[in-house]
Simulated scan of single mutants.
Amino acid sequence: MEKSIDNLNAIEKLNTKLGVKALLSKKVISIDRSLRIVGYVKRLKKLQVELIKMQTSVIENNERVIVIFEGRDAAGKGGAIRRITERINPRHFRIIALPKPTKEEQTQWYFQRYIRKFPKAGEIVFFDRSWYNRAVVEPVNGFCTKEEYECFMNQVNDFERMITQSGIKLVKIYMSITKKEQERRFEEIQKNPLKQWKMTDVDKKAQELWDDYTCYKTKMFENVNEDSVPWKIINANRKTMARMNSIEYLLKQIPYDKNREV
């Protein structure tokens, strides 16, 4: 009896525009995969409604929020940020993905160019990679000196304490993938002419330098003290789950009225 009910529920889900689209999205039809897609899209829409409520609260209360996404190359940081922001008010958020520093910026205090991008009242700023470039990417690839790296590690906790004490809410998310999954995604990017632009020289060395990244990533996590904003490590091998887990974590960090109508 229960199996019959499950089958009926599955048929109902697939007998929709979304269900048919999911079924036909691949050459080989997979009912299980299609049901997962339908479930993901429905769950994502519900979470995006909550994000609208959360952002409305940020705007009305003149709050300032920074959300930073870190993780290995091809971990899905950009995709998670897109799902978070695609339904909220574009006038009240910014996505920041800074290029390499200019010659002028190289002469400044390291954190300076990030501070310029901080949120005003009623705004959320998403950093697709942040000042933590200096904790992992830069030392692994030789983009900073040992002294610059150590200076950063000594200053970052105090820097973030100043951020939070000034009233800014800071959320830190690290998206984690396996070496095998990163390799698979790189191959997919290289085969897709619409995604090839994503593959940088740094990305091309990521597999070779995997253990070095692991070493510095571990040091970054260990550097957090009792007063620091904690990292949320999200398993990102499955993109859909990683996106939903990122949204759910963000919603828990920013208080808002869950009963608000939108």
Rank of each mutant, 00 (worst) to 15 (best):
M1K: 04
E2T: 13
D6P: 01
N7P: 00
I11A: 05
I11N: 04
I11E: 02
E12R: 05
E12D: 12
K13F: 03
G19I: 02
S25P: 13
S25H: 08
K26E: 12
V28F: 12
V28W: 03
S30Y: 03
I31K: 01
R33S: 00
S34F: 12
R36D: 03
V38Y: 09
R43M: 11
L44D: 02
K53S: 01
T56C: 02
S57W: 01
E63Q: 12
I68D: 13
F69I: 00
D73Q: 12
G78H: 07
I81C: 09
I81G: 11
R83A: 13
T85H: 09
E86Y: 04
R87W: 11
N89A: 11
H92V: 05
H92D: 03
P101A: 09
T102K: 00
E104M: 07
Q106S: 15
Q108H: 13
Y110K: 11
Y110I: 12
F111G: 05
Q112V: 15
R116I: 14
K117I: 08
F118L: 00
F118Y: 05
A121C: 06
A121W: 06
A121G: 07
V125E: 13
F127I: 09
D128L: 09
D128Y: 00
W131I: 12
Y132W: 11
A135S: 15
P139I: 07
P139Y: 00
N141W: 05
G142W: 00
G142Q: 06
T145Y: 03
E148L: 04
Y149A: 14
C151F: 15
F152K: 08
M153T: 14
V156A: 11
N157A: 09
E160V: 02
E160W: 06
T164I: 01
S166V: 08
I173F: 09
I177Y: 08
T178M: 00
K180C: 05
K180M: 02
Q182C: 01
R184L: 05
F186M: 09
E188N: 12
E188D: 14
I189F: 05
I189P: 11
Q190L: 15
Q190H: 08
L194I: 14
K195S: 10
T200S: 08
K204L: 10
Q207A: 07
E208D: 10
D212K: 00
T214Y: 05
T214N: 11
C215A: 15
T218N: 15
T218K: 15
T218W: 11
E222N: 14
E222M: 10
N223A: 15
V224P: 11
N225A: 02
V229R: 00
V229M: 07
P230A: 03
K232H: 07
K232N: 06
I233K: 10
N235H: 07
N237R: 01
M241H: 01
A242S: 10
I247E: 01
Y249V: 03
K252N: 14
P255Q: 05
Y256M: 04
V262P: 07
V262M: 01
